[in-house]
Amino acid sequence: MSTLIVCRCEEVSLETLQKTAYQYHCSSRELKLRTRAGMGVCGGRSCRMMIEQIATAGDNEKNYETETIPLKYQPPIRPVPFGVWGGLSDE
């Protein structure tokens, strides 16, 4: 059977993610940095929930009360074409 890919952009499999999560007992952020899952062109829009789910799978206590999204979003959230970085071009 072909592998189960979780992050399509970087082609990271469920197996790799689970192994890494188990081996390093890591947070979703660390899991992302170690495997590159969620770091591709789409900015993790498609797989961030799954990465979080894998990272927290071992914990019984899910800490939802932190008031922040576990995998931080950073601008730009869409690729910026060259030449756009400038002053205000419109009113």
């Binding site: 059977m1 072909s2 189960l4 890919i5 979780v6 399509r8 469920l14 498609s46 797989c47 799954m50």
Partner: peptide, 12 residues
């Protein structure tokens, strides 16, 4: 909203 996928082998 965005769709949250359930991955399946071969889904790319």
């Amino acid at each position: 909203a965005t769709e949250s996928p359930t991955p399946i082998p071969g889904w790319t």
